[in-house]
Design a protein around this nucleic acid. Structure first.
Lengths: 343, 343
DNA sequence: ACCAATTTCCAAAGCGCTTTGGATAATTTT
DNA sequence: AAAATTATCCAAAGCGCTTTGGAAATTGGT
C-alpha cells in the first residue's frame, strides 16, 4: 500500500493525500480525517527511503560510540544512549551508531559519517575541555548538539547541567558542617564536566577561606575500584591531613570510597561524610545506598531525551538561534553526610 | 556530484557508470578503472536514499536495545554492540537501535521496527530459553540472526559459542584437580546461555560420580556484587559443604568471589579455585586478574562481527540455508586454580 | 447577480539510483 | 565474407515520495 494506491482508493490526488497526512494547511479538515482514517485502515506506512530521497533528509541522527574515550563509565553512557534512542523513535527519527575503530581516528569516523550523508545531524557527548570535534563538524557543515560544554571558538548548540554550581553547593554544604579537609574524586580531568566540577569545588573552598590541596584531589575512571584506591590512599594520610569528607563524580566511585572507609572501620555519615553525583541510573540509586547517599542529582536519561529534542528542533528550524540550556542540579541531603568529627 | 553529473563528465550512460562502480561484469575493465578514477577524483558518493529507494533495501541492520532484559551486564552488551557497529560499517551497512520503553512491550518495538521498513534484517542477542521473538520476526518475514541459541520451532540463523562444552570442560578440570564441591555462579537462568552452562556443569559432575547440589548453584546478574554475595553465602556453609572451587559466568562475578574469599583469609588458587568465563573485554582481562585467572574464553566482540557478516550474507543470498555456527571455547589454565585443599 | 479573494485540490516534475530490454560494436565461427 | 556470438554500452522506466505552479470550486462583498 503506497501513496498512489491510497490516493486512487480515496479518489484524491497524491498531493492531497500527502498533504493531509503531513498536516499541511491547504487541505480541508473533512478530507484530512477521511484520509487519515483510510491510511489507518489500510495500514499505510510511507516509505522512509522515498521520503528521504524526496526531502533530502534522512530522518536519522548520528552518534559516535566513544570506545576510545570511554572514561565515561559505560553504564552512564548506555543510559544516555538508550534514552536518546527512545526519544528519537518517539519523534520519528532513527539513531545510527558509528564507532571509532582501533586504527581509525575519531576524526575519520566523523568524516565518514558526514560524507555518507546518511545522517541529518549528530549528537556529541562527553566533550573534552577543548574539543576538536566541534570545529570539524562545523567545517563539514553538519548540525549537531553537544551534551556538555567546551571551550570553542565556533558557536554550538548545547545542553549541559550546572556541574560547577552543583559541586560548589556540595562543597559549601560540607564546609558548613565543619569539614575542612574535603577530598574530590573526580572524573577524568580531560573532560570538561570534570573541570567544571573541580572549579566549583575550588571556588567553594576558597570562599570559605580554605585552600584546595593537591593530595585531596584526583580524577580518573568512574569505577568503584578507582574510588576505593584513591580513597584508601587519602585515608592513609596522617590524621591531620586525612580528609573527613569525600566528594565523588559518580555513585560507583562512592561505593569504592565506602569500601575503603569500612576497611578502616570508619562509618559513612559519622566518621566520613560522602557526597556523590547521581546520574539517576535505574540500577544505581543514591537512596538505596547504605547509608542513603547525599547527592547532587540530575537525570542523564532526561538529558539524553532533551538533546534529541534540541537536535530535531534545530533541523526543523535551521535558522533559529542555537539553543544553550544549562540545567540546575539539586543537592539532596541524605544520611551519608554529617558534622565533621571532633579531632 | 551525482551519478548523472558523473556520467555526463565521462561521456558514458548512467547505466554504465552505475555498473562499473558496482562491479557488474558487463563493463570492460578499462572503462571500469576510468570510472573509478573519476568517481574518486570528484569525490562521488552515491546517495544512500536513492539507492534504498531503487533497490528496496535500506542498507541498515536493526538491533533492539535490551534495556529491560539487561541481565546481560551492560559492559558485555556494549562490547558486542560496538563490534557489530564496527563490522557493519566496514561492510557498508548502518546499525540503528531500537529500544523497548517502559510501557511498550518488546514485541511492539519489533513490530514497529519491521513495519517502518527501515531495516533489512535484525540482530537478536541474549535469547531466553524459549524466545518469542523468533516466531514474531518469522511471522513478520524479517530476516534475522540470533546470537545464541534457543528452543524454537521456527528455523533460524545462529552464531553461538559452545557454552555447555566450555563449562563441562572447566568443571571436569576442577574435578581432576580433586575438587568435589564446586559452585556455579551463573548468569540469569532464564537465558539460554546460562542453561547451557549449567547443563555442562551438571554433566561433568555426573560423569565424575558427583551430584550437583542446589546450595552450590545460583544464577543472577553479572556483577561483582552478586558474585560476592553468593560466594559469601556459600563460604559460610559448614566446612563439609563449603565449596572449594567456583565457576563463574563472568569475570565481574569472579571479582566478587575473590573479594568474598579474601575477607575470609582464603587464597585464590590455593584455598579456593576459581574459573570464570572470559568474554575478552578490553578492560576486564583474565590475565591481569590477581592471580591470573583460569578462564573459558571466547571473544564476544568477534562474535558480534561474525553475526553481522552472517546477517549480511543472508541478505545477499536469501535462499541459502540458514547458517548455524557454534564456536568452540578454550579453557585457558592460569594461576587461579589448583589442587583441592586437603581437609 | 458578478467579480475578487480565498479554499481546496491536482498534474507533473523532480529526488538519484537500479535494472530491464535492447542496440551497437567487436570478435569469432563457418 | 557473411553469419553467429559475444562483449560493451545505452535509453528509459521505474522506486514512492514531496513540492511547485496552477486550476477549479467555494466564499464574500457589492
Amino acid at each position: 500500500m503506497n501513496l498512489r494506491d491510497l490516493s486512487l482508493l480515496l479518489d484524491l490526488s497524491q498531493t492531497t493525500v500527502s498533504r493531509a497526512l503531513n498536516g499541511f494547511p491547504e487541505v480541508s479538515e473533512r478530507t484530512r480525517t477521511r484520509v487519515r482514517a483510510a491510511a489507518e485502515l489500510h495500514g499505510y506506512r510511507p516509505s522512509a527511503a522515498a521520503r528521504r530521497l524526496a526531502t533530502g533528509q534522512s530522518g536519522t541522527l548520528g552518534l559516535v560510540f566513544p570506545r576510545e574515550r570511554n572514561m565515561l563509565s559505560d553504564l552512564i553512557f548506555t543510559e544516555f544512549l538508550g534514552c536518546c534512542v527512545e526519544q528519537a523513535s518517539d519523534l520519528g527519527y532513527d539513531i545510527t551508531l558509528a564507532m571509532a575503530r582501533g586504527a581509525q581516528t575519531e576524526e575519520a569516523v566523523y568524516r565518514r559519517a558526514v560524507r555518507s550523508a546518511r545522517v541529518d545531524a549528530m549528537i556529541l557527548s562527553s566533550p573534552l575541555i577543548a574539543d576538536p570535534r566541534l570545529g570539524l563538524l562545523r567545517s563539514l557543515n553538519m548540525p549537531f548538539v553537544l551534551h556538555g560544554r567546551t571551550r570553542s571558538s565556533v558557536p554550538y548548540a548545547t545542553l549541559d547541567i550546572d556541574n560547577r554550581s552543583a559541586f560548589l553547593q556540595a562543597t559549601r554544604f560540607l564546609c558548613d558542617l565543619g569539614h575542612t579537609r574535603i577530598a574530590l574524586i573526580n572524573g577524568d580531568r580531560r573532560f570538561n564536566f570534570a573541570a567544571d566540577r573541580e572549579s566549583g569545588y575550588r571556588e567553594a573552598l576558597t570562599m570559605k577561606g580554605l585552600t584546595p590541596r593537591a593530595e585531596h584531589l584526583c580524577g580518573g575512571v568512574m569505577t568503584e575500584n578507582y574510588g576505593e584506591a584513591e580513597a584508601a590512599r587519602m585515608l592513609r594520610l596522617p590524621s591531620d591531613d586525612r580528609p573527613t569528607a569525600f566528594l565523588c563524580s559518580s555513585i560507583a566511585q562512592a561505593m569504592g570510597v565506602k569500601r575503603a572507609a569500612q576497611s578502616l572501620q570508619l562509618k559513612i555519615g559519622e566518621d566520613v561524610s560522602l557526597i556523590a553525583h547521581d546520574d539517576r541510573l535505574a540500577d544505581v540509586r543514591a537512596e538505596t545506598f547504605d547509608p542513603p547517599l547525599t547527592a547532587t542529582q540530575s537525570s542523564i536519561g532526561a538529558a539524553g531525551k532533551r538533546v534529541v529534542e534540541l537536535v530535531i528542533q534545530q533541523l526543523r528550524e535551521p535558522d533559529a538561534p542555537l539553543p544553550s540550556e544549562v540545567w540546575p542540579v539539586d543537592l539532596v541531603v541524605r544520611a551519608s553526610t554529617g558534622p565533621a568529627p571532633r579531632t
